[in-house]
Nucleic acid binder design. Sequence first.
DNA 1: AAGTGGTCTAGACCACCTT
DNA 2: AGGTGGTCTAGACCACTTA
Lengths: 246, 246
Amino acid sequence: MSSAPPPEAAETDLALGRTIYQRVHERLRNDILAGRIPPGGRLKIADIARRHGLSQMPVREALQQLQGEGLVILSPNRGARVRAMDAAFIRSLFDIREALEGFLTRQAAACLTPALIEQLRGLQRRYDAAVESGDLRACSPLNREFHEAILRATGNHEAIRLLNQHTALIAALRGRAGYAPGRLATIRQEHWALIEALERGDGAAAQRVHAAHVRRAAEDMLAMLRAAAPVLLPEARTRAGLLRRA
Amino acid sequence: MSSAPPPEAAETDLALGRTIYQRVHERLRNDILAGRIPPGGRLKIADIARRHGLSQMPVREALQQLQGEGLVILSPNRGARVRAMDAAFIRSLFDIREALEGFLTRQAAACLTPALIEQLRGLQRRYDAAVESGDLRACSPLNREFHEAILRATGNHEAIRLLNQHTALIAALRGRAGYAPGRLATIRQEHWALIEALERGDGAAAQRVHAAHVRRAAEDMLAMLRAAAPVLLPEARTRAGLLRRA
DNA sequence: AAGTGGTCTAGACCACCTT
DNA sequence: AGGTGGTCTAGACCACTTA
């Protein structure tokens, strides 16, 4: 764990967004993605409002936005929870990624210019450097930027938006699970193979490399989560849930 | 307008949802999908609130939800508009459908039971009957149900949710564009070909049929919209009759 | 029966656009 | 400056849960 995170001194940090609900949105989003509010964890409007010195409505708006992103489940008269994720749901996310990103990767092979290929090489070299210097913090953003650079070539911004949302959900888990040993090195090889296929303009090969890439990522994450298991189970308020029938 | 509230059978009753913002959400959603509020059209919170006899907050919540579904664009301090759609955006939607639904269709070929195949046949027979009897109103829901039945076999509910959202966006346009002549008959052939491939368990063939199906749908819709063109352009300074100060 | 916590209202506030 | 219309607050209201 990192040391000395000023616990409450960070109350003045809400200076980024322009409206209040945007700032609350960003704040909660960061808290969820950093794992400070675990999957299945409850988000109480009154609590959050009090903690930030606001009334309840902007908090509600922020929660609605998060629901739109899929990070939060909001049930009428019941409140909000961080989306709980089980193995089937995680598999769904990775299948979506394989299908959608794979399709666009194939398209990209037909329209990548030499300049864009060179840009990919540059990004991947920075990724390599980050792995070698042990700067793990820098890896995930570079990984994401690498793939997004490919997608942008297709001009399908709607698909990119969807994929980014799902990346956020996965990142929310990654914070708890981490990477398996050796995974980062494998990613390097896979990315270079992808660059090679794209450079040849071989869309089918690029899609195959991408599919294998995503499947390995999925298996890796499922294995990590199985190891650090109990966090994932929906939640354990114990006896409460069992009296459902009545 | 504001008068004559009590015996209104005219206003479709808001009796369905359980909370107010849910009912407003459903109402606005229907208005948009039915084309009563055109793409690019403005949604004024105060107007809507007054019209329904509510305060502004539940209306805001409803708009946030619609933004989450992608039907509405909400910009801070600027208000809400129905998402405007140009040709590039529509192409993006159909590419997403081809990629995601095609992938799942391929998966489904491996796990469809004879009973499910028979269910598909039943749905498609009802579709055929609707086309032949000229009941065009019934076609779109049956079409949607046919594809969703296939997708459900894969168990990927998250993907189904995404695809349904995008179907809604397309339906919002369909209301204005309609179908090209003969399109409905072509859809019949394509669906039967899809059933046949699925029955053989030939996922690759099913995906090919699906891809062709979606591409034809995309070209058809783009042609229809090109014919009925000007509606699509973002908007045209029409400050006609809305603001009537007397 | 009381408590917790989500939902709704009325109106003040303020950002942005028009004159 | 004036106006339009989106945003925020405080508190009442009410659904659902706990004793």
